[in-house]
Amino acid sequence: MPLNASSLSVGDTHSEVVVENLTRTQIVQYAGASGDYNPIHTDTPFTKEIAGYPSVFAHGMLSMGMTGKMLTNYVGDGRLTAFGVRFTRQVFPGATLTATATVEAIREEDGQHFVDLAVSTTNQEGQEVCKGDASARIDA
C-alpha cells in the first residue's frame, strides 16, 4: 500500500526486525545470490588468521538488502527514488537487526509527492550497523 502525503507527518516511524539470529548459512546464501564470494564472509580460518577478525561477518550489502525489505514494505514496491547508507559497524553471525525509517520531510515537486526518510539499522546491542536515508514517491 503506497503512503499518502495527507496521512504522513514528520517524525512518523516504521520499524521492522529484518533478521533474528543471523546464520552463517544465510551469509553463504547471500554470497551465492549476489556473487560476492569475499572469504571474510564465509571462511573462518581466513578471516581469523589472515584478516584478523574474530569471525566471518555479513556482507554490508546483506544488511542493506534486509534494510531495503523494511523500506519496500513501508513505501510500497517500485516507489523508492533513492536509498543510501553508511556501514557503521560489522554484522556478525547471531545478529538480530532492526531497521527503522523515520519521516524527515514530505514534499511536492511538479505535482508529485515525495517522502524523505532517515534510515537506521541497529543490532541486538542497540549499535547502529547502517545509517542513511531514502526517498520515495507517495500518493497525495
Binding site: V18, V19, E20, L22, T23, R24, P93, G94, A95
Partner: peptide
C-alpha cells in the same frame, strides 16, 4: 525469516 534453522548463529 523468523523460523528456526539448524545452522549456527550465535
Amino acid at each position: 525469516p523468523g523460523r528456526p534453522w539448524r545452522g549456527s548463529g550465535a
